[in-house]
Simulated assay, not measured.
Amino acid sequence: MQKITQYDGLYGEASDEASERRSNAEYLYSELLETRSRTFDWIIQPHIHARLFQVFFIETGQFEFQEATRKRQLTGPCLLLIPPTALHGFNYNSDVQGRILTLSGALVDSLFPGGSPVASMLGSLQCIRTFQDPYSGKRVSGLIEAIDGELFDDQPEKRLMLHICLQQLFLVCYRLWQHNDEVGSQENNLSLQYFRKFQQRIRQVGTTQSVAQLADDLAITPVHLNRICRVIANKSASQLVQEHLLDEARKYLTYTTYSISEIAYLLHFEYPNYFARFFRKHTGLSPTEFRESHQPRQ
């Protein structure tokens, strides 16, 4: 099994090169997709970024996109929004063209606080493949190029302008996302919105809140939340909380070098032994045993 790497900075950077990415809450970088991909023979191995959010806009060309649970064959134009800790990898055709924006998770959070509906979209990996007026692929490309131009220029109030440009880009992404997800009746759409907000809250708070508290955050009852979860996922709210935590724990144990205590902290467990007890209950193995059993063979 291939070991999946975690980067504090950009793909392929050594840890000392990534220090700015790690410490700068306003970090923002723009580059042509072809530049870095060509360096690695058009293959970007599956990896995660602990603190960085990325926007990939593939204008033309075909590529294979690997997520945590599947691979997809995609063709440009295609817009990918990849939040921190989301596993991703690429195998590009050599004629692919596009651009990548990389920004700190803290900057994204400052642009759209948790209560914003846009934050709900940005909390999970999104793949937008349908573009239509007034939000064509050409317009999205223009917004990203405007950010690139502002970033590498030195005009007055540069920071404010960049924030405005980023907000405009993400709002356009949000409208495209809403259009792509328009299925079923208004009631079903509302249920989907609740379900996505519920998933986002799980990622934010982990085990620090009960299902009742999570439902209260959404301004609905626990019974209503469970009904939504069973209709959409055929599972209870508590089962989905546990599954998310287990999936994240397995990912960290398999693909990163975080200690057990660090993983417990990342998953919002109060104490490492609480995390270890939870993991053994649901897998039959301690976190250490699971990690040792999933080490790559020499």
Rank of each mutant, 00 (worst) to 15 (best):
L79A: 06
D41A: 14
S15N: 12
R280S: 09
F278T: 07
R36A: 12
H49R: 03
S104P: 03
P272E: 08
V172A: 08
Q295L: 14
L162F: 04
L79C: 06
T208H: 03
A264G: 08
F90V: 03
F269Q: 05
L285K: 10
E262W: 05
E145Y: 15
Y27T: 04
V118K: 13
A212E: 14
A215W: 00
W177T: 05
D95M: 08
F195Q: 03
A68P: 02
K251I: 10
T102H: 02
M161V: 14
E145D: 15
P222A: 00
L218N: 12
T288E: 13
Y135G: 02
A18D: 02
C229N: 01
V96R: 11
Y174K: 11
N93A: 14
Y29M: 13
Q66K: 13
E150D: 01
I43A: 07
Y174V: 05
L246M: 07
N24L: 02
L143P: 07
G123T: 02
T208A: 09
T35N: 14
D217G: 06
R99Q: 05
L253M: 01
Q54N: 05
H47K: 03
A25L: 13
I144S: 10
R36M: 12
S293I: 11
Q66V: 14
D148H: 15
C127W: 00
E150Y: 10
G184I: 09
I220D: 06
I260Y: 04
T39R: 12
S94K: 06
R99M: 04
L192Y: 15
R70K: 06
Q73K: 14
F63P: 01
R99H: 09
Q213T: 13
Q199F: 00
L246G: 05
Y92C: 01
Y29S: 14
L266D: 08
R159D: 11
L266V: 02
R277Q: 02
F131E: 02
A219L: 14
D181L: 14
D247Y: 13
D109H: 13
R291Q: 05
N189F: 13
L33G: 02
G206C: 00
C127G: 06
A219K: 15
E248N: 01
R201T: 11
L266A: 09
V241E: 04
